[in-house]
Amino acid sequence: MMNTNTNTERFADANITDTKIVRKAQGMPASDGAGVKLSRIIGQPSLKRLDPFLMLDEFGSHEAQDYIAGFPKHPHRGFQTVTYMLEGKMGHKDSVGNEGVIEDGGLQWMNAGKGIIHEEMPQQTQGRMRGFQLWVNLPAKDKLSEPGYQDIPTADIPEVELNGAKVRVLAGEFNGVQGPVKTQAIQPQFLDLHLTSNSTLSIDTDLSHAGFIYAYEGKIEIGEQYLEKGQLGVLEFGNRLLVRASNDARAIFVSGSPINEPIAQYGPFVMNTEAEIQQALRDYQSGVLA
């Protein structure tokens, strides 16, 4: 019986392929909105895009002058925006009547679709504000879908504690727990990983996906590769991602189905052709974007 079990375990192990880092990227200083200081990780010259992800920014400062001007009214069409607040309060309004506040640990997943005009403005004048903004592309069939969004407070984000670590499940699934994000356009998986000293996490991953892991505190190890704070690892997917930490560390893991379609982009408009971009500009200028 022992030999049979051992053979079964070896056979199972042979079917496991590890997700690995194939490239690293370092964020570069940038500003957006009305002068918010941030680090641009995806969307910079060394990592222009990572299909289906168009942009990843990390913003964070104790200094109000670095964030207080916020992101005044601006348009979007053809993709989704994701705002994940680690610390602080960010208010938002849009052209279809939605309004709310994203607070510590909360998430907004917005579908711009055929068009929306919105603003994101800090709801604090002192203290630390820190978080991420991620842009997620949409396939051609969904680019002119109805705009809308989910506002998800931190209390509605499930957390799984395992092997001395904690995982906040924002989208997709971890260890049988489903995240609250409902969009299915790219079948997203979005996890916030909180690792303690000498902890290891095993995350089931999708062989068909593309994506990244970004260390925002401490240092993590994947295979023989390390990521330190502020570094992103572009991943080649197997069906398991092993993340280790020798000391306390935090990272976001994000993946989704590649779209594999042409991209035409002009600022906040992301379509498939230049003709569609010109139509988006005409719609915006004539006031019929949203």
Rank of each mutant, 00 (worst) to 15 (best):
M2G: 15
T4L: 15
T6G: 03
E9C: 09
R10S: 14
D18P: 00
V22F: 14
V22K: 15
V22Q: 11
R23V: 09
G27A: 11
G27Y: 01
P29V: 12
S31R: 13
D32Y: 09
L38G: 02
P45A: 09
P52I: 05
L56I: 08
E63I: 10
Q65K: 15
Y67N: 05
Y67P: 06
A69K: 14
F71E: 05
H74A: 08
H76S: 02
Q80E: 15
M85R: 03
M90S: 03
K93Q: 14
N98A: 13
N98G: 12
I102L: 13
E103W: 01
I116M: 00
M121T: 09
Q123W: 03
Q126N: 15
G127L: 10
V136I: 14
V136E: 10
P139S: 12
K141N: 11
L144V: 04
I152E: 02
T154A: 15
P158W: 11
V160I: 13
N163E: 12
K166N: 06
L170H: 04
F174E: 12
G176F: 14
G176W: 14
G179A: 12
V181A: 11
K182P: 04
Q184P: 08
Q184M: 13
D192K: 00
D204M: 09
T205H: 02
Y214I: 05
E217T: 07
E217F: 06
K219G: 03
I220H: 02
I220L: 10
E221R: 15
L227V: 11
Q231L: 11
Q231A: 10
L232H: 04
G233N: 04
N239T: 08
N239Q: 10
R240F: 04
N247P: 06
N247G: 14
D248C: 08
I259K: 03
E261R: 08
I263N: 01
E274C: 02
I277H: 05
A280R: 00
L281N: 00
S286F: 00
